[in-house]
């Protein structure tokens, strides 16, 4: 990255602008309550006073950035990791079901794509169901899954991971179907002239051709998997995980908590996607000797 220096200025400018807008928004959204209070107590107030008070409200409609930062410090650095009030503890629980769901979803997605590419009946019969499955709102489905599994005595990691899986198998299936079908007819003919078996064609031609498609899908899948995990934690009713923190924050009007959990979720999601990105670059480098985008020579 030789252009890092040139890129940092716009990025910093955007972040500064967001912070300024955030502070202004906090005044705008919190001031009605504070002005009410001023009127009741019948005190004189200035705009500076109003701003100061709206940036330090305990249960603000929109907490100011520094309040969220303090909440983050309190729940990440000050609390021990094993404490139920530590965001690290909750993030780890969400992460574990995100990763399990991601592995399950990716495996399911790859298996389905192979079936669809190799079995004509599956191509015709399965794809409509797969697309339909994604039109069901996950918010409607998640509580049912949790409840049904709970009734069978299964709770915790597995039902949550299944919801993540449900969300993230889809992009993997779609991407891998496209990837496995990406070799040009010429390359397929080439393998035919060698009298290569189906398995040899799969291993030596179709699978390597699908790798760039797979990684594009995995980036979408891991982010969806995290969304699935958080949504799955909402109906568990404030037990553990970032989702339950979001829920209990909204129960008790602790907006600081909601924002802190949201920021942790966003950072986690961005990190997971960029880890996949690094993995992609490493694998493609190994595959094609440093060529950024190995297009099939044809």
């Amino acid at each position: 990255m030789t252009t890092n220096k040139g890129n940092s200025i716009p990025v910093i400018t955007v972040i500064m602008a967001i912070i300024v807008i955030w502070y202004a928004g906090a005044v705008q959204l919190n001031s009605p309550q504070i002005i009410d209070r001023y009127v009741k107590k019948n005190v004189d107030w200035s705009f500076t006073q109003l701003a100061m008070d709206s940036w330090s409200m305990k249960r603000a409609v929109l907490p100011a950035p520094h309040q969220v930062a303090i909440e983050l410090k309190k729940t990440i650095i000050d609390k021990s990791v094993t404490s139920k009030r530590s965001l690290v503890y909750h993030a780890a629980i969400t992460l574990s079901s995100t990763l399990l769901g991601f592995v399950l979803g990716t495996s399911l997605g790859i298996v389905l794509s192979i079936g669809i590419v190799y079995v004509v009946t599956l191509d015709r019969s399965l794809m409509p169901w797969i697309i339909t499955s994604q039109t069901i709102p996950i918010l409607a489905l998640a509580p049912m899954v949790i409840v049904v599994f709970g009734a069978m005595g299964i709770s915790g990691l597995l039902p949550k991971a299944l919801i993540s899986m449900y969300l993230c198998f889809f992009p993997v299936t779609v991407g891998m179907v496209k990837g496995l079908r990406s070799p040009s007819p010429m390359l397929v003919d080439l393998m035919a002239t060698y009298h290569a078996s189906q398995w040899q064609v799969f291993l030596r031609l179709r699978l390597p051709s699908a790798v760039p498609f797979l990684f594009a899908s995995l980036k979408v899948a891991i982010a969806l998997s995290l969304v699935g995990a958080i949504v799955a934690e909402l109906p568990t009713g404030g037990q553990a995980g970032l989702g339950s923190r979001l829920l209990s924050g909204s129960y008790y009007g602790q907006t600081n908590l909601i924002w802190a959990a949201l920021i942790v979720a966003a950072v986690m999601s961005a990190s997971l996607v960029s880890i996949i990105g690094y993995l992609e670059r490493y694998v493609i480098q190994r595959l094609a000797g440093g060529q950024a985008d190995p297009q099939v020579t044809s």
Binding site: S184, M186, L187, D189, L190, A192, T193, Y194, H195, R204, L205, P208, V211, L287, A288, G289, Q291, P294, Q295, V296, T297, S298
Partner: peptide
């Protein structure tokens, strides 16, 4: 003949696998 790999075939394009040396 194909099953016995009795011939070699050179296509219009090189048709090389880009991930192989």
């Amino acid at each position: 003949a194909r099953q016995q790999r009795a011939y070699g075939y050179v296509f219009q394009a090189p048709a090389l696998l880009p991930w192989r040396t």
